[in-house]
Design a protein around this nucleic acid. Structure first.
Lengths: 253, 253
DNA sequence: ATTGTTGGATTGTTGGACAAAGAGAGTCTA
DNA sequence: TAGACTCTCTTTGTCCAACAATCCAACAAT
């Protein structure tokens, strides 16, 4: 029995268009930031209908290689992790990853990030971190959710680590991890504990960063992320339940 | 002057279709594995043309929520990191990330992965690792490239760590990191060093895993990944050059 | 039991058409 | 002459209608 034959895939025109455009951008023949030819032009050049071109473009849009700048034409752009991360988060969500899985990775990534950031961080980022902490104080006083600010705080630190690979790796995690804390903050048994402690930890991390103290920053971050797990324990929530949160698509930049 | 008004985004039908289908799948109204309605049906239900539906579908395809199973209809599927990772890698590549950035992250992720895997690994994975090592011996003897096997070795370990978040985080890194070693293996100054050492390290890691020895596994992995950096140094290649490799799209599963 | 055949369903591709929104040029006014 | 207001022209978004290619399943033929 010959069972080794691969299913041969019949090429579809719109896929070909997709790949051709991709190649065109990757190779730099369509330079970053410049507009793509019009649909009609592409249709002519590729020898297919405009409809077919459009289908190829829809696919291209999703890979972040191309963006609809305000106005009309599609422009080639550098794909940014913010474009890709929501899909990653969603995939994780749908696979039913547990809080434990998220936490394990978040712990390590965030600790590395702050460790790397400490010696590199510059005044501008420190300022933004200060603003973030201030905003969180305000939000806390007014009883608003601090999740968004929490996400931002950690994202700022990760950026300061000057490692784009780290940035891309942690983004899908971050998008899922911090929102998954929401229910913690609203849980009665931890209500007095969590949000205030988050703020405190952020303050201490910021202080350490201001002094370029990698060890202190590292320790506080570790404690900080550990706290979340402790919160789950205290609240009696099972760590091995799938997290459930909504992932909203990125709003673009 | 009123300047605070947000640019309001005019909804496009194909985006609406995209989102509607996404929602339909996410909510479970279209269960995993089941086929989507036909294009004509969708067109009727949404009240748009079939072509508009198709554009929405092209976008859906890219987010991995849907797959063209062999034959005809699109089926809803759990998005898998293998579908998403290549885009992540490509984004990194295009941003011109350096070997140093990749290495820094790979070092930590791989070390942690093997540490987690050690106590959890089961016989089946060990067998596959053994097969992998054997294949690498063969490839080495025949002078073929060991990159693909290298990637697989580390992927197997990461899988054994039983953490899907880790799996997703490391995939884009892995897809870029190991291929970026190709030029190292071909470099004369390290020719006697690298490929053989890779094999040796893999053997030792496997041995440690067989004995569930997390510490030894960890140490060998650390040494192993460190070696790559040392290789770059020895070869006199600048760590801060952007890596250049090809990222081929996933072949699907 | 394996191999054609046939018809119906669905996808892939094409054609042509038109409305809506931007971009740019030209015009008018202050 | 700068700014505001048209008025085109271009390009995109959407629609309608059709046909070719492919697949599926049932059935017929060997």
């Amino acid at each position: 029995m010959t069972n080794h034959l691969k299913r041969l895939t019949i090429p579809k025109a719109y896929e070909a268009v997709h790949r051709a455009l991709e190649e065109e951008i990757l190779s730099g023949r369509i330079p970053m930031g410049s507009p793509l030819p019009t649909e009609t032009e592409l249709a002519e050049q590729f020898g297919v209908t405009r409809h077919t071109v459009r289908e190829g473009m829809r696919a291209l849009e999703q890979s972040g290689l191309v963006r609809r700048e305000a106005g009309r034409r599609l422009h080639a752009v550098l794909p940014h992790h913010e474009d890709l991360a929501p899909r990653g988060s969603r995939a994780l969500l749908m696979q039913g990853v547990t809080f434990r899985e998220l936490w394990e990775v978040a712990l390590r990534l965030e600790v590395w990030a702050v460790e790397m950031a400490a010696p590199l961080i510059d005044a501008a980022v420190i300022e933004r971190l200060e603003a973030n902490v201030a905003a969180m104080e305000k939000a806390l006083a007014e009883g608003r959710s601090i999740i968004a600010l929490d996400v931002e705080f950690h994202a700022l630190i990760a950026e300061a680590a000057c490692n784009r690979v780290l940035l891309m790796s942690r983004e899908p995690v971050s998008l899922l991890f911090y929102p998954s804390l929401e229910k913690l903050f609203r849980h009665p048994r931890t209500a007095d504990l969590s949000p205030a402690r988050v703020l405190e930890a952020h303050r201490e991390i910021l202080r350490a960063l201001r002094q370029r103290d990698a060890v202190a920053a590292r320790d506080w971050m570790e404690r900080h992320i550990m706290d979340f797990r402790r919160g789950y324990d205290l609240a009696g929530i099972d760590l091995d339940q799938p997290v459930d949160t909504k992932v909203e698509p990125s709003t673009g930049r």
